[in-house]
Write a protein that binds this DNA or RNA. Sequence first.
DNA 1: ATATACTTGATCAATTTAGTCAACTATGTT
DNA 2: AACATAGTTGACTAAATTGATCAAGTATAT
Lengths: 152, 152
Amino acid sequence: MRITSSVEYATRLMVALSRAFGQTPLSAETLSETENVPVDYVNQILLRLKRAGLVESHRGIRGGYTLSKRPEQVKLGQVVRAVEGEIFESVCGRYEGGKKDCHHQGRCGISPVWRRLGAMIEEYFDGITLDNLMQEQGMPCPVKLEGLFHER
Amino acid sequence: MRITSSVEYATRLMVALSRAFGQTPLSAETLSETENVPVDYVNQILLRLKRAGLVESHRGIRGGYTLSKRPEQVKLGQVVRAVEGEIFESVCGRYEGGKKDCHHQGRCGISPVWRRLGAMIEEYFDGITLDNLMQEQGMPCPVKLEGLFHER
DNA sequence: ATATACTTGATCAATTTAGTCAACTATGTT
DNA sequence: AACATAGTTGACTAAATTGATCAAGTATAT
């Protein structure tokens, strides 16, 4: 379980765009240099972010990318979903044993444990905004998880 | 971000061994059948669990595996660490950009966000015991995360 | 003795992740 | 209009990880 390079890079790119919010667009080339990410990879990631509606692109000589929304209105969860599809992939049914004779239904308590973990992680990511990420010390106290554990 | 088959299988195997706790050992062959996991893979996973001290092996004609400790004394976190090494791999420095001109040090708030996520996930796994997993409804309310978000 | 069953390390295939490439389209500037 | 900048697209490749298999052992209860 780890943060992939796509997510790491996407997050850094979004923070860079947050810093430049309200100013002129940042080109993929520029972002590639300041963030030390291969330019083609930057383009690929920005394209996914664009398709998710998180950034806008501007062609031509002084083109580049800008945030679609204000930094405080963009959640880290949206960024992760844009590049990964799903934040936490459900496990039930993915493996042979699970499908054929699923021990995740009525016979043991494993399934809810995975589900809650997924919910917890999503909640965590959705509780953090780009604005939080721009702060030196990270976000203050973004998530309230109490409810999750009593959910039935 | 997902639960790997090793973790899924290891968890199921440990729950099966929990059910048989105090009884005769369960052979890899038996576990393979009841859990629908290839027998060689079962052996591989059980070996890792053994090296982590979570199960004991018994050779010979009525041999097999037994839990080393009572189900309520084994944490899910230990099971995950036994098969995966680390529950959540630290990201800082893993990628080129991070090493060369790390944006995770003093200049933005990304790093603490990953660290806290990792701490949260570890805390979650360590708050669940095999005993919890045996219950139909999963564990009750294993984790208190309040402290995590104010940690500095 | 012998059948059962754990032990070990190597190997292999499938999948995912990371990164590259090339051909193209749009746009501002001169 | 010409041109340079810069986004767009999809295919492609390489590396790493994951999932699974195999073979040649060793130990032990009966």
